[in-house]
Design a protein around this nucleic acid. Structure first.
Length: 887
RNA sequence: GGGCGAUUAGCUCAGUUGGUUAGAGCGCUUGCUUGACAUGCAAGAGGUCACUGGUUCGAUCCCGGUAUCGCCCACCA
């Protein structure tokens, strides 16, 4: 084995083997219970970023863990066509050739996008593979493949027939750059510093003005009224009077509407039904015809003064203000912060736009999805998101699903030119069912991307056909994603699952944090602050990336990364590698693993590591089941590094080196390889590659049939805790041994004693019990502390000029002629005395509080008393030590 | 405007069903080319657990308030 672990070739090798042997495939005919996850499909033209790395690592841990614990595990992979995003990318490419999609035409443009899709699809899936994702690639789906498209059309038709899909002219969020409608969720509200403009609208028949306040002056060109609250004393008498809209010179009435807030602005609102959702509602209430004054690119148009026509909305805003200023109609301009909607794909400020769109009626769909969360049939981790989910469900609004782009599922609706009827059908109709005409045109729009994603958990499994896989793997078990798409995707999947399959598509939702840089900014390509996962993988390996991400990510918390974050995983992998290497290099001929030695021939150290191992096994499994992955990673890190490497292997070194006593060597090999084998299995879900690599080497050197139960670790069984090997007494006793060793090391270190100077330790245990514990470990104490002699004697008199310490009542002396600096020793003991005295004081104070004895539970009081006795004993011994040094 | 989260070592973060002397990684100091590993070993320094009231025998943890930061939602133009 190499001195340093080199992940690059190893990782690719194993992924190829796993794939070739089809070890990731979930068999729908299996008798085993299933465990299934559907991947949140990444954008087909996307590139793997740290968010994906975290997301997919979590899913892979669960899938691999469940696979090893006896489930038929299936992880459904796939990609999303990501309508607007993908179309934008391809349009950008065309723009470089000075072309637009309109130059190509719909058909040619779509061909171009498909080409792009084919090319980039491989990029994202290869990146997922690099990460080690054990997806069932045989089942991979794409949101626009034939089966899924069929599901989309079926669902559309069904909802239409149920009256849950309708078309109508409403105000929707419009992105003037993408030139399409957006859903409410796709318009992101960002705080921004704007202005509140106060304009004077003159009366028609008399002197004076009504002052209105607006943040969007350009919309005044489309005003159809000014509204006031009917109970507003200031304006009561003006209701019904006419104003003259400045610049346009159109007459508009003053109307009364409860919607108007008397407190805000001047209490008088300009009403622009075609360009504001509230005004639109008011327009309906007052039967006003909306006046459209902006086109789909947010340039001014319509029945407005010539000089504004064709100007951009923001340029027009400036111009309007200037023009009103010139007329003396600007009362004042105030600073005003408000939330402005932006397109979630291109950050362009969205415009409320009056247009004909398709909608899904959401209230009926939300009922069940709401109940599922309230009743606890769905659990969201961390739980605090449940409230957010419930709020959204309770206040749900209809979903605008039509998009004026080309890349996506074409709306399955045809309009008959002959009879004018609307035909909604899963397949292209050959003739109009109403008038037999052949002259029909399909709706030009496509569906919102999320209209296919919300079917993902069952459409990918073949719904509505192919029942076998669906029966086996649906519903899925857990959905792992980022909270950003809780509404976009998770909530809608739950609604779709309930509505179309009568089943919740999953029962658990894991929402992990957002990946940020060290200054807290979201990592993104546009900010240029992202760390490329592939770069980390190519240097330190996917295991290092995975382990590092997992170990630092608390459940649901955001993740802050810098490049050296990944050293944690790299170093840990290297440590594991070298521990394994050490063990394997001490195996001269193939070792036959004969099982763990019988309890009688286990040393205390053996019993200790087995106790720690089985405790760890139980805790790790519990942590993974509870989705506390960082806890699992920490437990494994500590057990592997601190317990196994720092103490156990160090203690076993002598046995592994020596050649005389074969029985001891055999014993050491058996226990070490047993523990290592278990570590590899425990770690495999988090670090799949390095564990598989070491496991394969292990199988070469060790005949392991009773321990290694499968050719590959990924198909091995996950360790189960053996309760009978958990031994709290041994663990407690070992902390004493470790403390004694550390005390001697501290004395050495603080006195600057060179490593090659060996000395003698004299230990005066505080009890026969402690003497009995420490005596069997004289060899180990000598080795760990580089001593040539250790004397353990209850009645020994500590030598005067020595390093001294008191550990849990046991006195420890280190004798090294001429090398101990007495002043150093005195200082340390004085410090120790001061610390102990403080401790004694606080404990005494607690015990002497009468209400403590009265009210605290008896065992707590007893514990405190015992503690006090112990530390007083310590204190006495420390004082004696100091006295001895001072004589 | 409503809701949620965070505030713990120099930095980044765990943790606590309320009970010994609060943890990790990195960084820092000191000593080590010790026959697995310098991506390492050993030892050490470093914290009034944001502030403030309350509940309690006991609060870093539970409750109220304040401050700062962050996130989500929202049709006051």
């Amino acid at each position: 084995m190499e001195k340093q672990y080199n992940p690059v070739s190893v990782e690719d090798k194993w992924y190829a083997i796993w794939t070739e042997k089809k070890l990731f495939h979930g068999d729908e005919f299996s008798k085993k219970p299933k465990y299934s996850i559907v991947i949140p499909p990444p954008n087909v033209t996307g590139i793997l970023h740290m968010g994906h790395a975290l997301n997919n690592t979590i899913q892979d841990i669960l899938i691999r863990f469940k696979r090893m614990t006896g489930y038929e595990a299936m992880w459904m992979p796939g990609t999303d066509h990501a309508g607007i995003a993908t179309q934008n990318v391809v349009e950008k490419k065309l723009a470089k050739e000075n072309k637009t999609r309109h130059d190509l035409g719909r058909e040619a443009f779509l061909k171009e996008v498909w080409k792009w899709k084919e090319q980039y699809h491989a990029t994202i899936t290869n990146q997922l593979k690099k990460l080690g994702s054990s997806c069932d690639w045989d089942r991979e789906r794409f949101t626009m493949d034939e089966g899924l498209s069929k599901a989309v059309r079926k669902v559309f038709v069904q909802l239409y027939n149920e009256g849950l899909i309708y078309r109508g002219k409403y105000i929707i969020n419009w992105c003037p750059r993408c030139q399409t409608a957006l859903s409410d969720e796709e318009a992101e509200h960002k705080e921004s510093n704007g202005k509140l403009y106060h304009f004077k609208y003159p009366f028609k028949n008399k002197e004076g003005f009504v002052i209105v306040a607006t943040t969007r002056p350009e919309t005044m060109l489309g005003d159809t009224a000014v509204a006031v609250n009917p109970s507003d004393e200031r304006y009561k008498d003006l209701i019904g009077q006419m104003l003259v809209l400045p610049l346009v010179n159109r007459e508009i009435p003053i109307i009364a509407d409860d919607f108007v807030d008397k407190e805000f602005g001047t209490g008088a609102v300009k009403v622009t039904p075609a360009h504001d959702p509230n005004d639109f509602q008011m327009g309906l209430r007052h039967k006003m015809t909306p006046i459209v004054i902006m086109d789909e690119t947010a340039h001014m148009t319509g029945p407005i003064p010539q000089q504004y026509i064709g100007t951009d909305r923001f340029a027009c805003r400036k111009q309007i203000v200037a023009d009103l200023e010139a007329l003396g109609l600007v009362e004042k301009i105030e600073d005003h912060t408000h939330a402005v909607g932006q397109c979630y794909r291109c950050a362009t400020v969205v415009e409320p736009y009056y247009s004909n769109q398709w909608f899904v009626k959401m209230k009926p769909l939300a009922e069940g999805a709401l109940a599922a969360a309230v009743d606890g049939k769905i659990t969201i981790y961390p739980e605090r998101w449940k409230k957010t989910y419930i709020d959204w469900m309770e206040n749900i609004r209809d979903w605008c699903i039509s998009r004026q782009i080309w890349w996506g599922h074409r709306i399955p609706v045809w309009y008959c030119k002959e009879c004018g009827k609307t035909i909604v059908a899963e397949e292209t109709p050959s003739e109009c069912p109403y008038c037999r005409s052949f002259d029909m045109t399909q709706d030009e729009d496509v569906l919102d991307t999320w209209f296919s994603s919300w079917l993902w958990p069952f459409s990918t499994l073949g719904w509505p056909q192919d029942k076998k896989a669906l029966q086996k793997f649906y519903p899925t078990d857990v959905l792992v994603t980022a909270p950003e798409i809780l509404f976009f995707w998770v909530a809608r999947m739950i609604m779709a699952g309930l509505h179309f399959t009568d089943t919740l598509p999953f029962t658990d939702v894991i929402l992990h944090g957002t990946v940020r840089d060290k200054t807290g900014r979201k990592m993104s390509k546009s900010l240029g602050n992202s760390i490329d996962p592939l770069e980390i993988i190519s240097v330190s390996g996917a295991d290092a990336l995975r382990f590092s991400l997992i170990v630092i990510t608390a459940q649901g918390a955001d993740v802050f990364l810098s490049k050296d974050t990944f050293d944690i995983g790299r170093n840990f992998g290297n440590k594991l590698w070298n521990a394994s290497r050490f063990l394997l290099e001490n195996i001269k001929t193939k070792h036959v693993f004969t099982g763990l030695p019988s309890s009688a021939s286990l040393s205390a150290f053996d019993k200790w590591i087995l106790s720690r191992l089985n405790t760890t096994v139980a805790e790790v499994s519990k942590a993974i089941e509870a989705y506390r992955f960082n806890e699992a990673a920490h437990l494994l890190y500590d057990f592997t590094w601190r317990d196994f490497c720092d103490w156990y292997i160090e203690a076993k070194k002598a046995d592994l080196y020596q050649t005389e006593d074969n029985a001891r060597m055999e014993n050491a090999l058996n226990t070490c390889s047993w523990v290592l084998g278990n570590i590899l299995k425990l770690l495999h879900p988090i670090m799949p590659f390095i564990t598989e690599e070491i496991y394969s080497t292990l199988r070469e050197k060790i005949d392991y049939s009773s321990l290694l139960d499968s050719e590959y670790i990924m198909t091995s069984s996950y360790p189960k805790a053996n309760e009978s090997l958990v031994n709290p007494v041994i663990e407690k006793e070992f902390s004493l041994l470790k403390d004694v060793i550390t005390a001697i090391r501290t004395i050495r270190s603080e006195n600057n004693i060179p490593p090659d100077k060996k000395g003698r330790a004299i230990i005066v245990p505080s009890s026969q019990e402690n003497a009995d514990l420490l005596c069997p470990h004289i060899t180990e104490i000598n080795m760990f502390c580089r001593l040539n002699e250790t004397i353990i004697d209850l009645k020994a008199q500590g030598p005067k000029f020595s390093g001294q310490a008191v550990v849990m009542g046991n006195q420890v002396y280190l004798e090294l002629a001429g090398l101990i600096d007495i002043s150093v020793e005195k200082d340390r003991i004085k410090k120790e005395i001061a610390k102990t005295e403080k401790f004694v004081e606080s404990t005494k104070a607690r015990l002497s509080n009468p209400s403590f004895a009265d009210k605290a539970p008896a065992d707590v009081v007893a514990k405190e008393k015992e503690k006090l006795a112990g530390i007083i004993e310590n204190l006495e011994k420390l004082k004696l030590s100091l006295k001895a040094l001072e004589e």
